[in-house]
Design a protein around this nucleic acid. Structure first.
Length: 1054
RNA sequence: GGGUCUAUAGCUCAGUGGUAGAGCGCGCGCCUGAUAAGCGCGAGGUCGGAAGUUCGAUUCUUCCUAGACCCA
């Protein structure tokens, strides 16, 4: 027999369930339950690895709720799922934390501290918050196999990454280049484009207009705009658009050259005069005096043509500093311009520019502006607000810097990558061709190398003698080539140890490793392979677990993990059919605060997930996300919204509580009490359940959690507000009639199915309900159950349609009662349904009568409305006035009188009107005709004593007349309700029998005597007696029964 | 400057080429043998603005405005 226990409050409930899961090792059993199916039914999930060196925050929660939902669902469906966890452990984020901890501020200081000690610290730091995560995930019901989680810093993982790099190298796609790259001067390393993408921020920079004196013209200056004053010393050229028109503008005694189109924008209200125009092409070759002359190369300081010059802002003349801009660099290469760089790798000016030597470039802006102003070279200055990239971790502004770096030639495989992406199912779909697709279209080579310490070492060795380069792809290869093979056998694949391994070159020389580590996004992007240490181990596992069916991460990973997975996979597995390495990707939105701002630590508006979970519980938080909006929408996270959305869960608890209460009292045994025939309501709710199952299943298959939760909510509403509401009395019966068994068995089955349907969404509540309903023959946890399958045999759409109509009739009827201000407890004689649909079967009518509390229900054809409706004439005053002129007021009067006439007379007139489409009137001897439609029309009003309600396409009329008999019944029903309230107030159990004593107004007394049996049945009163003495009673109360006085006393029978 | 997305009730959000929806909040009721629960009704909307396609546009198209994210 099931337990039918009470459900404690959500927090206690979740604590109990957590304990149960742990004791019974349910998560483990869940993940292994489909081992037998793994050959044919697999659902492959990849974990996007978090970095464990920080606490989990609310933003992490969003992808994680979905990463839990879908695998749970698939597990219940019998799919084999490996939910292998993973940790991202390398890279700048970790190094920065450690630097901070150790108080180090530059690479020099790290070197001084010792690379070995530093790297050891990094490795340690990675695990600093691991326990936080391991506590948080289970609390939320997020189940992972953390025991076998992949860790990107292990030798095995790195070996797989090396294998990949070697394959890429062998394809000739790994090369060393000299390019202008976004560079973080604080971290001392260039960043890849997807890292840069993480760090754009709105910032205010200086905006200055400079005068560059033309060498061969009197008092003439090129007007140049820049937002980076610190690059001015490195200027070697000016660029113009050859096809643009430039103007020579006289301002005071000076002449400025700038784009014609931009004159007013730049000069504003200043008084000026255009003294000539010239095409850009004609400016090319002109010489000018640079503000700072750091080069004496003959080709420097002249005007060149460039196609990237725009007329959107500035002056149409662009200052060129090849050391600090990609486009500048290219122009410099093409034009043979000198390369001037007075800035060192820490972003500080060197002695080559004494004015600001030793200063960080951004700090030098002010010095330079001041100097230029002092020398009369500044036309005007201001500030400029724009988006500028900052280091995504340390927030230092990035500098565009010409540097040596290793690249992966991703552009060589761009078409393949795009083709692969086209086959991926993105959720939402528009990401594929939109945001992500666009990124692929404008893809650049992957700047792979980092001048740092803690990361996967770039496995390239270069011969000191012949400069030959070799890429090592495995430990075995390292051992084979190493000078010290013993050392190579055990060396850890990290700096500084790996740097000590020297290789023998084929020329006989010694090879040293280049000192770079690689971008940690390459690490995590390789998890599809490296998590299995493939190809060195786990060949079968890899074959089985590639590609993933499903991944989910935040949309900030578009250019991060989504990209690195796709690129590495496409490059490595050219022979595998697309798509890989993931088939479905769910992009999740950002977490915003109450005011719609992105949650971030710097804004201080981050919600601690513990604060939320400890108050509302994990189920409520999960449901909030699933039901609130599509995964990819940004979410405002206001804790009070979580309370609002959990209403559905409360209803589920209520329905369960109702069932458990009576199932417990009556010892309902699902094994013993078998159903012979299902009652109408039972067949209905089972039919609706089949519908709900198919809807929820479809929605989950299509990765639409909102639709799934809506289907659940609809079903729960139907279950609670129609099925249970109308079935309550069936659960109270004293003997096991077939109808009672049918009710119990049905609700039992429905709740059991509902628990399973809820399991992936709210695993705690689902488990609690299941535990109270399960028999010994059933699996020990709801999470080890099979996902329900819709049974078409139980579906009856005809029945559903009928029931829907019945519900609509009830709604309309209740609306009418509301209008008439007659409460439902007061029985009424008649309700009339006006509908084009045929009358419902008696069973439905019974339900409707019960809900509307009417004695009789009849159906009226809409063609014959006059039994209950009376017609009224409405008229169009303006039309009457126009046609009848002075007769119009009289016509109105007649019509008003007609509206007061006898019902039969009016019906007769209406029938005439309908036949002839006009109404004939005689006014002062004159016969006039009023056409229907333009002048008059007929409206129907309920006849006296009737009130109308409507819903959808039908109407319901209520006869509101209450005769003595009805009034008596109303009194009795009111009396019964008051007694029930007293039972509760007295603290009796619902099944306690009572003795009931009363004294009351004569009218109430008469009614009670007449309906004594009914009262006793309803209140479980073994006796009902008039009694003026209440000495013995346990509970007594004065009552107001519809305005009449009564007093009752109760005694509980034991 | 470019791209993508978003704009629907006071709030949070569904949805649709044919009379606009839910939850919460608000007002008024109701019901109660689920009992500190539950239900109904009502108020509240130019479906961001403009134009176009269409018999009909909140829905499709274009433009504009605002916001978010991304890119430059």
């Amino acid at each position: 027999m099931p337990k039918y226990g009470k459900l404690p409050d959500p927090l206690t409930l979740e604590a109990e369930i957590l304990q149960f899961w742990e004791q019974a090792t349910i998560p483990k059993k869940s993940l292994s339950r489909n081992e037998k199916n793994r050959a044919k039914k697999r659902f492959v999930f990849y974990e996007g690895p978090p970095t464990a060196n920080d606490k989990p925050h609310f933003g992490h929660l969003i992808p994680r709720v979905y990463k839990d939902l879908f695998p749970r669902y698939k597990l219940m469906q019998g799919y084999h799922v490996i939910k292998k966890g993973g940790w991202d452990t390398h890279g700048l984020p970790v190094e920065l934390k450690v630097e901070k901890e150790l108080g180090l501020n530059s690479k020099r200081e790290i070197e001084a501290f010792g690379v070995e000690a530093f790297v050891n610290k990094c490795k340690e730091n990675v695990w600093k918050f691991k326990s936080e995560w391991e506590r948080f995930d289970p609390r939320m019901g997020f189940w992972y196999d953390q025991e076998h989680a992949y860790i990107t810093y292990t030798n095995e993982y790195i070996e797989s990454v090396w294998w990949a790099l070697k394959k890429i190298w062998e394809k000739g796609l790994l090369y060393k280049g000299h390019k202008v790259l976004p560079y973080c001067p604080r971290c001392g390393t260039p960043l890849s484009s997807h890292e840069v993408a993480q760090g754009y921020e709105t910032t205010q920079d200086p905006s200055i207009f400079l005068k560059f004196k033309a060498r061969d013209l009197q008092d003439t200056h090129f007007l140049v705009w820049t937002t980076t004053p610190w690059t001015v010393p490195s200027n070697v050229a000016l660029a113009v658009g050859p096809s643009y028109t430039y103007a020579k503008v006289q301002v005071g005694s000076e002449i400025f050259i700038l784009a014609h189109e931009l004159i007013s924008q730049v000069l504003g209200t200043e008084h000026y005069e255009i003294v000539g125009t010239v095409r850009g092409a004609d400016l090319v070759g002109m010489r000018y005096e640079p503000p700072y002359r750091l080069s004496d190369a003959p080709g420097a300081y002249r005007v060149v043509a460039a196609d990237f010059v725009s007329l959107e802002e500035g002056t149409g003349i662009v200052h060129i500093a090849p050391a600090f801009g990609e486009e500048d660099y290219q122009v410099g290469q093409a034009e043979g311009l000198p390369f001037v760089n007075p800035v060192d790798l820490e972003g500080k000016f060197t002695m080559a520019f004494p004015l600001a030597a030793g200063q960080f470039v951004k700090d030098a802006d002010a010095v330079i502006i001041h100097d230029l102003k002092h020398r009369g070279l500044l036309y005007k200055s201001g500030t400029y607000k724009h988006e500028y990239p900052f280091c995504w971790r340390c927030k230092t502004p990035l500098l565009y810097y010409a540097l040596d770096s290793y690249f992966i030639r991703t552009t060589a495989k761009q078409n393949e990558i795009i083709e692969n992406n086209k086959q991926i199912h993105w959720h939402p779909e528009h990401f594929r061709d939109g945001r992500f697709g666009n990124f692929l279209e404008t893809m650049k080579d992957w700047a792979l190398s980092r001048d740092r310490y803690w990361g996967t070492p770039l496995p390239l060795w270069v011969c000191e003698q012949c400069q030959r380069e070799h890429c090592v792809g495995s430990r075995q290869e390292l051992i084979d080539l190493a000078l010290d093979k013993e050392k190579a056998r055990t060396v850890e694949f990290h700096r500084p140890w790996i740097d000590e391994i020297l290789l023998r070159c084929s020329c006989g020389g010694t090879m040293r490793r280049v000192l770079y580590v690689i971008d940690c996004w390459f690490d995590s992007g390789m998890m599809h392979t490296a998590q299995w240490h493939y190809p060195f181990e786990n060949q079968e596992l890899f074959a089985e677990q590639f590609p993933a069916d499903f991944i989910a991460e935040g949309l900030d990973q578009t250019r991060g993990w989504f990209y690195s997975l796709l690129v590495t996979s496409t490059l490595l597995y050219e022979e595998k059919p697309y798509p890989h390495p993931y088939r479905h990707v769910v992009v999740t939105g950002m977490g915003l605060d109450e005011s719609g701002k992105k949650m971030s630590k710097s804004l201080g508006n981050v919600l601690d997930p513990w604060d939320v979970v400890n108050v509302y519980g994990a189920d409520a938080v999960r449901w909030f996300f699933y039901s609130g909006s599509a995964p990819w929408r940004d979410r405002r996270l206001d804790p009070k919204d979580i309370v609002e959305t959990r209403g559905v869960l409360e209803t589920v608890r209520n329905v369960y509580s109702f069932f458990a209460l009576y199932a417990g009292i009556d010892h309902f045994d699902p094994a013993r009490h078998t159903v012979s025939e299902r009652a109408l309501l039972d067949r209905w709710i089972l039919s609706r359940l089949q519908y709900a199952i198919s809807e929820i299943t479809r929605a989950l298959d299509e990765y639409e959690p909102v639709a799934a939760t809506q289907a659940i909510a609809t079903f729960v509403d139907e279950l609670s507000n129609w099925y249970v509401r109308n079935s309550r009395a069936r659960f109270w019966g004293s003997s096991w009639t077939p109808d009672k068994i049918s009710a119990f068995a049905t609700l039992y089955e429905v709740l059991l199915a509902l628990a399973k349907l809820l399991a992936p969404f709210v695993p705690f509540l689902a488990e609690a309900i299941y535990q109270n309903l399960k028999t010994d023959q059933m699996p020990e946890s709801v999470h080890l159950c099979d996902w329900p399958q819709a049974n078409d045999k139980l579906r009856d759409e005809g029945l559903e349609a009928q029931m829907k109509l019945a519900r609509q009739i009830v709604t309309a009827g209740l609306q009418a009662r509301n209008k008439a201000q007659i409460k439902v407890r007061q029985p009424l004689a008649l309700a009339v349904v006006l509908s084009t649909r045929p009358p419902l079967d008696p069973e439905y009518q019974q339900l409707i009568r019960q809900e509307l509390n009417v004695k009789q229900l009849t159906w009226l054809s809409q063609d014959q409305p006059f039994a209950f409706y009376t017609p009224q004439f409405e008229y169009e005053k303006s039309a009457l006035g126009k046609d009848l002129r002075s007769l119009a007021p009289k016509a109105v009067h007649i019509l008003e009188e007609l509206n007061k006439a006898e019902h039969e007379k009016r019906v007769q007139l209406v029938q005439e009107l309908k036949a002839q489409h006009k109404l004939r009137l005689t006014i002062e001897g004159q016969e006039i005709e009023l056409p229907e439609g333009t002048h008059i029309r007929v409206v129907l009003q309920p006849r006296e004593g009737y009130v109308e309600g409507s819903e959808a396409d039908m109407k319901v009329l209520l006869d509101t007349r209450i005769d003595d008999a009805l009034r008596q019944e109303g009194l009795v029903r009111e009396f019964v309700r008051l007694v029930q309230e007293c039972r509760k107030e007295a603290g009796f159990e619902v099944s306690d029998r009572i003795e009931l004593y009363y004294e009351a107004d004569p009218e109430v007394q008469t009614a009670l005597e007449k309906f004594a049996q009914h009262v006793q049945e309803e209140t479980l009163a073994v006796t009902l007696q008039r009694n003026s003495s209440f000495e013995r009673v346990e509970f007594t109360k004065e009552l107001d029964v519809n305005g009449r006085r009564a007093k009752i006393g109760l005694i509980r029978k034991r």
